[in-house]
Amino acid sequence: MIDTHDRPVGDIVWDLYAYVLDRIGPVPTLIEWDANVPGWTTLKAQADRAETVMLARSQAALSVA
């Protein structure tokens, strides 16, 4: 995978993120933009998606326990 830090996170990366969260649990997450930084709406949407994935994986882990 190539991480260019200049566009929205791709679906394959979101899948990898969920996979990792299933194994290690919720952790602080940074979505990094180094170039072509978009407007606040896009940045907020990406942060919200990370939060949604993390919460979903956390709730799934709790329901199994």
Rank of each mutant, 00 (worst) to 15 (best):
W40G: 00
Y17P: 00
A50E: 06
R57D: 01
W14V: 04
R23M: 08
D3Y: 05
Y19Q: 14
R23A: 12
R49K: 15
R49E: 06
G25M: 07
V13L: 10
D22K: 15
G39F: 02
T52E: 13
Q59E: 15
A45D: 03
D6Q: 12
P26E: 11
Y17E: 04
D15P: 00
A35L: 03
T41D: 12
E51L: 15
E51P: 00
Q46S: 04
T4L: 09
A35Y: 09
Q59I: 13
G25N: 03
R7I: 02
L30Y: 09
P28D: 13
G10V: 09
D34I: 05
L55S: 06
L43F: 03
R49N: 03
A47F: 04
S58W: 08
V64G: 06
W40S: 05
N36P: 06
V53E: 02
W33I: 00
L43K: 02
M54F: 02
W40A: 05
L43D: 01
M1C: 06
A47L: 14
V20R: 10
R57G: 04
D6I: 04
W40I: 04
G39T: 07
T52Q: 11
W33T: 00
D22H: 13
T52N: 03
L30V: 13
T29L: 08
S58N: 07
M1E: 15
V64D: 08
D3E: 09
A35N: 07
A47K: 08
I2S: 04
L21E: 00
W14K: 02
V9R: 01
N36F: 10
S63L: 11
K44G: 01
R7Q: 10
I24E: 14
P8I: 06
M54E: 14
A35W: 03
G10Q: 12
D15C: 08
A65F: 10
A35F: 03
T4S: 13
A18P: 00
S63T: 15
Y19F: 11
P8L: 03
W40Q: 04
I12K: 15
T52G: 01
A50N: 05
G10H: 05
I24D: 13
D6H: 10
D48G: 05
R23Q: 11
D6W: 02
V13C: 07
L21T: 00
V53L: 06
D15R: 09
E51D: 13
S58F: 11
A65R: 14
R7F: 00
H5C: 09
A47N: 05
T4W: 01
V13M: 13
T52F: 02
H5Y: 13
Y17A: 02
S58E: 10
D22A: 06
A50M: 07
R23S: 12
Y17K: 10
I24Y: 08
T29S: 15
G10C: 05
A18Y: 08
W14Q: 01
A60H: 11
P38M: 13
A45Y: 02
S63I: 10
L30C: 10
A50K: 09
Y17C: 05
P38T: 11
Q46L: 00
Y19K: 11
Q46W: 00
P38Y: 10
P28C: 13
Y19C: 09
S63M: 11
I2Y: 01
E32S: 11
T41C: 02
T41P: 01
G25F: 06
N36R: 15
W14F: 09
R7G: 04
T42Q: 07
A60G: 06
V64K: 14
T42E: 06
T29P: 03
S58R: 14
S58G: 05
K44R: 12
Y17I: 03
A65V: 12
Q46F: 01
